[in-house]
Design a protein around this nucleic acid. Structure first.
Length: 879
RNA sequence: AGGCACGUAGCUCAGGGGGAGAGCGCUACCCUGACACGGUAGAGGUCCCGGGUUCAAAUCCCGGCGUGCCUACCA
């Protein structure tokens, strides 16, 4: 049979295109809820339908894929539930922009047609990110792909809304909310992102009604004075105990307003006098309620001053501010302006400055839900990894405020509430025909839709068919793990916890793994405006998906952000190529048939089998503990530096040699070990491993269906590992001498060794050919009894001393220098050990095994030092 | 204002009470029949500073300095 040949270097593009289709066609990602295997389930953090794959997605989904692919290999029935999120505001914005380019607005279309248009948009472009996830190799169960606006999920949303309403956990009311004047909708507190803004603190004179002077008020938002209905001072403030009057006149508008006294007012900030604008500030709103003040809303939905603002009506809020200030100045009412840095809310979708405005909205009462959600983490029903995030989670849950869930946009789940002319509000699963109170049939549905996160909060169970009792829910809920970045810990994780516990009576996930943020090479957050985004798709094109994924995994250390750089990806591209070439070598040297395992395994066989299994166990444990970087590095180190550097070199003589039995045995071990290497790399590098798996003669099916090497196969062989260790040390010593002496690679050397113990002697005697091959020696022999090779470089190892005769090769001063260096090292080691051993406290208090180890170290260093010194003396005698 | 991280090789970072590690970069030599996206050898570190705990501190504690992030209604 013609041995399979591979190209000299790996070309990812062509290979990657092939295998994804293969996996999907063969249903390898599909989860069977009736399987007898133990379940492992993950729900994808649904990306926005408007989204394009960025580094954050790439990391997030790579880690999930590593978990899922590993778990399949480890014998679990894995469900990775995929889908997208309808991203209400963002999607509406995108489609509105599209309309704008046609010179139209959504109002030209009307609600129905606009929504139709959004669905069209979704048909056309909504699959983009899904395809990009496929490109990344994500092994999601696409047959189950969901969308937060699809029918099933919409039913779940409605069910949840109605039940919360019935239990009094949803209410409607007038409160101060965050209003985005550009998106024309209310936002939740979370969606208002605070940013530092350079502003002013303006000191404004509010004249007393009786004309006897004025009260000075400090504010950062002078335009809101148009809506002031009082001025407040602290009753304890001596400055304001005896005021000239108890009524002031609102500057510019002349409205009479009371001076009220409230402990809320800080005496040490500004002037100690606070203007009260109940319709435009959350605290003022509270104070207004307490003191029965009227609320005057002076801004419209565009953030422009409305009719209540009198002469300022029609001005945009920023223009109004300028005008108000100018007019105050002109009237001598502006006392001073201080520069002031404060943080102001901005719309998380469009970055417009958010306006706190009094408005009627729907709210979820989160207190009771948060309580349960908090306890679930406290009691360990859900575990947050790394646990440092517990604190953040608890803090947020403790200080949580009611959640404004209504949005004044069109794209989303319309709130299932109807208004009757009689004033009745009907919340219902089905569209009501008549008012249950007055029997009227003229019902008007609420126009608001729900916050997108409301539907996302149900994701772990709504995607599995809830509110029906489905086999999927039975098998896969609660999910095993949620993988996400911390920036949506509150937005999403916390809310899923609340909803899962409320409606499933069970946590939505057992583990939450919180991974890092991906930054650019200098640690900056990537953003389009900074122009420092690294596009994952370009990286995949350039270096291959496997290299890219491996880089992400190798970087994913817990608790630290990732600084992505192309050089690093290039490094792992080289690793993929190394694997490719190891395969090339393997295939060139395997027969077509499956050879029997060696009857008499050699040291190399025993060693590499033991090592690959140990590595597989370590990689498995690292993945289980979410130490993705450790897992990747363990696989890397083993594959490159043990399998390639040592094992492949060690077996070449057998493969090229003329002992057919030995060759067949070696081939069998090589084939077996290489297939295990492919398995343990597969979670990280699905494409190249699948490709090579199929090239291996005798391979069955997909590597995805293979079994993770179990550590229990009784193939662990510490003795072989130790013996190989000594052999590697001896070879290393000769190589070191060669390198340091400047003996050229082409020049062969003699190697003579002396062993201090029987076992080492036996090992070296029977494996001299390995030293010969790997150290490029022309001969290897044991020193005769009593012989000390003269004119030789030497290296004292533990039980062995290695000599390399130098006569005629190099002059001895180089060896003297090398020995000097070695001596210095040994002396340092010895001194450190002796210092410890000379310390009575150490001997008395340190654990016995530490003391013993130290003693062994000292005597080893001592013996090494003596031999080095002897050698140096001998070398010098020839100089 | 509070909270959370992080300062370890030239760069990017692992590690985490008893032998300073990796990748990249660098130096020297080598196109050895898998691989120059490679091989062999090597150089390079006050583990931010100062105290403390301990027989023992890069590691734990306290205090600085520096950096990053998150939360927050003092107008």
């Amino acid at each position: 049979m013609q041995p399979e040949t591979l190209d000299k270097s790996y070309e990812p593009a062509e290979v990657e295109a092939r295998w994804y289709e293969f996996w999907e066609e063969n249903g390898l990602f599909h989860a069977d809820p009736h399987s007898g295997k133990p379940p492992y389930s993950v729900v994808i953090p649904p990306p926005n339908v408007t989204g394009a794959l960025h580094m954050g997605h790439a990391l997030n989904n790579t880690l999930q894929d590593v978990l899922c692919r590993y778990k399949r290999l480890a014998g679990f029935e894995v469900l990775w539930m995929p889908g997208t999120d309808h991203a209400g505001i963002a999607t509406q914005n995108v489609v509105e922009r599209q309309l704008a380019s046609e010179g139209r607005t959504r109002h030209d279309l009307g609600r129905e047609q606009f929504i139709e248009r959004v669905w069209q948009w979704r048909e056309e472009y909504g699959g983009r990110i899904i395809n990009q996830l496929k490109r990344l190799g994500a092994s999601c169960d696409w047959q189950r792909e969901r969308f937060t606006m699809d029918q099933g999920l919409s039913r779940a949303v409605r069910e949840v809304f109605v039940r919360l309403w019935e239990e009094g956990l949803i209410y409607q009311g007038d409160y101060i909310i965050n209003w985005c004047p550009r998106c024309h909708t209310a936002l939740s507190d979370l969606e208002s992102e605070h940013e530092e803004v350079k502003g002013g603190l303006y000191h404004i004179r509010y004249p007393f009604k009786n004309g006897k002077g004025y009260l000075v008020v400090a504010t950062t938002r002078p335009e809101t004075l148009l809506g002031d209905t009082a001025v407040a001072v602290n009753p304890k403030d001596p400055r304001y105990r005896n005021l000239a009057d108890d009524t002031v006149l609102l500057p510019l508008l002349g409205r009479e307003m009371p001076i009220i006294r409230d402990e809320y007012v800080a005496t040490d900030f500004g002037t100690g006098a606070l203007k009260i604008t109940p319709a435009h500030d959350p605290h003022d709103f509270e104070i207004g309620l307490k003191h029965n003040l009227p609320s005057i809303r002076v801004m419209d939905d565009n953030g422009a001053i409305n009719a209540e603002g009198g002469p300022y009506a029609g001005l945009d809020r920023f223009a109004a501010r300028e005008k108000v200030l100018a007019d105050l100045e002109a009237k001598g009412l502006l006392e001073k302006k201080e520069d002031y840095l404060h943080s102001v809310g901005h719309c998380y979708r469009c970055k417009t400055m958010v306006e706190p405005i009094l408005s009627k909205q729907w709210f979820v009462k989160v207190g009771p839900l948060a309580e349960t959600a908090m306890r679930a983490v406290e009691t360990g029903r859900t575990r947050i990894v790394p646990e440092q995030w517990n604190k953040t989670y608890f803090e947020w849950m403790t200080n949580i405020r009611d959640w404004c869930v209504s949005r004044q946009i069109w794209w989303g789940h319309r709130i299932p509430a109807w208004y009757c002319a009689c004033g009745e509000v009907i919340v219902s699963r089905e569209t009501p025909q008549t008012c249950p109170k007055c029997g009227g049939a003229e019902l008007r549905q609420e126009t608001d839709v729900l916050d997108t996160w409301f539907s996302s909060a149900l994701w772990p169970f709504s995607t599995m068919g809830w509110p029906d009792q489905t086999p999927e829910l039975k098998k896969f809920y609660p999910t095993s793990c949620l993988v996400t970045a911390f920036d949506i810990l509150f937005f999403w994780v916390a809310r899923m916890m609340m909803m899962g516990l409320k409606f499933m009576d069970e946590v939505p996930f057992k583990d939450v793994y919180i991974h890092a943020l991906v930054r650019d090479a200098s640690g900056q957050k990537m953003s389009k405006s900074k122009g420092n985004v690294i596009d994952p798709l370009i990286m995949m094109d350039q270096f291959g998906t496997d290299a890219f994924r491996f880089t992400l995994a190798a970087f994913a250390a817990q608790g630290r952000d990732i600084k992505m750089s192309e050089e690093r990806i290039a490094g792992y591209r080289n690793f993929v190529n190394k694997i490719w070439n190891a395969a090339r070598f393997t295939l060139m040297n395997l027969g077509g048939e499956q050879e029997a395992a060696p009857a008499q395994p050699l040291l190399e066989d025993r060693w590499i089998i033991s090592r690959v299994n140990r590595t597989a166990a370590q990689v498995a444990q690292a993945i289980e503990e979410y130490r993705f970087n450790d897992a990747a590095n363990l696989a890397y180190q083993f594959t490159w530096h043990e399998f390639c550097d040592w094992y492949l070199e060690l077996i070449k003589p057998f493969l090229y040699g003329d002992d057919p039995a030995r060759r067949a045995a070696t081939q069998a071990t090589l084939r077996e070990v290489f297939s295990r290497v492919l398995i343990l790399l597969h979670p990280f590098m699905p494409f190249v491993t699948e490709e090579l798996w199929h090239k291996l003669p005798g391979a069955q099916g997909s590597v995805m269906r293979a079994q993770w090497p179990s550590g229990e196969e009784a193939e662990s062989d510490p003795q072989a590992e130790q013996a190989m260790g000594l052999l590697m040390e001896v070879i290393g010593a000769v190589r070191n001498i060669r390198g340091e002496m400047g003996i050229s690679p082409g020049q062969e050397v003699e190697v003579i060794w002396a062993a201090g113990d029987e076992a080492a002697a036996r090992l070296l005697t029977s494996h001299q050919d390995r030293v010969l091959a790997l150290a490029k020696a022309k001969s290897v022999r044991q020193a005769s009894p009593g012989e000390t090779p003269q004119k030789a470089a030497s290296a004292p190892l533990g039980a062995v001393t290695v000599y390399v005769p130098l006569a005629g090769l190099v002059d001895f001063s180089a060896e003297a220098q090398r020995l000097d260096k070695e001596i210095a090292k040994a002396e340092k080691d010895l001194a450190a050990s002796q210092k410890k051993l000379g310390n009575q406290g150490f001997l008395a208090k340190a654990p016995q095994e530490v003391v013993d180890k130290e003693k062994a170290k000292a005597s080893e260093a001592q013996s090494k030092l003596e031999r080095l010194k002897e050698n140096l003396a001998r070398v010098k005698s020839f100089m």
